[in-house]
C-alpha cells in the first residue's frame, strides 16, 4: 500500500473531522502536494455537499412524530408477567451448546460411576445375594449360587435327632444341586 492509498483511506474521516491533530496535518499536507489526492478530496467534498442538499430538501417531508410516539409507547408498555417469564426461560435454554456440554458431561460421569444405582438394566452382573454370615447350630448347610438365574440358595439339612417337626414328616434328603 503506497502513501496515496493510505491517505485515501483516511480522507473521509479527515473530512468529517474525526482524525487527531497530527494525523490531520499529515493528510492535509499530502493532499496539498499531491494532485491525485487533491482531486479525490474535491470529489468527496462535492459528493458530501450534494448528499447534504438532498437530505436537507427531503427532511421536512419526513414525519418523525409517529416514530417518536411509537417509540415512547413501546418504552412505556408494561410487559405481561407470563411473557416476561417466557422470555427469561427462553434466555436460559438458549445458552450455547458448550454451556450444556459441561453439565451433560457431569451427568454422564455420575451415571457411569454409579450405574448400579441409576441404570437397573446394568445390574445383572451383581444381582445375586451374598451370604455374609451363617450359623446353623451344628446342622449341615449347603450354599449354592447359580449365576444364570441369579439365584442364591441356603439349604438347611434338618437331619439331626429332634429336628423333625412331626413324626409323619420324614426329612427329605435335599435337592441334588
Amino acid at each position: 500500500m503506497n502513501e496515496c492509498e493510505r491517505i485515501e483511506q483516511s480522507m473521509e474521516r479527515w473530512l468529517d473531522g474525526e482524525l487527531g491533530a497530527a494525523e490531520s496535518e499529515v493528510v492535509r499536507s499530502h493532499v496539498d502536494s499531491c494532485a491525485n489526492c487533491g482531486a479525490v478530496q474535491q470529489r468527496l467534498v462535492k459528493l458530501e455537499r450534494a448528499l447534504g442538499n438532498v437530505l436537507a430538501a427531503a427532511a421536512p417531508r419526513i414525519e418523525f412524530a409517529p416514530f417518536w410516539s411509537e417509540l415512547e409507547r413501546r418504552i412505556d408498555e408494561k410487559t405481561p408477567w407470563h411473557k416476561d417469564l417466557r422470555e427469561r426461560i427462553h434466555g436460559w435454554f438458549a445458552v450455547p451448546r458448550t454451556a450444556w456440554a459441561v453439565p451433560a458431561l457431569i451427568v454422564l460421569l455420575i451415571a457411569v460411576l454409579s450405574y448400579d444405582s441409576y441404570l437397573p438394566f446394568w445390574r445383572s452382573r451383581n444381582n445375586s445375594a451374598t451370604v455374609v454370615s451363617i450359623d446353623a447350630y451344628g446342622r449341615s448347610v449347603a450354599l449354592l449360587r447359580e449365576d444364570e438365574s441369579k439365584t442364591t440358595v441356603i439349604w438347611l439339612y434338618q437331619n439331626q435327632e429332634g429336628d423333625d417337626e412331626a413324626a409323619e414328616e420324614t426329612p427329605q434328603p435335599g435337592p441334588a444341586f
Binding site: 451370604v131 454370615s133 450359623d135 446353623a136
Partner: peptide
Amino acid sequence: LLDTTVKIPNKGNFI
C-alpha cells in the same frame, strides 16, 4: 435352626 446375614440386591431375593 439357623442364623444368617445376607446382602440382597434391592428388589431381589434369595432362597
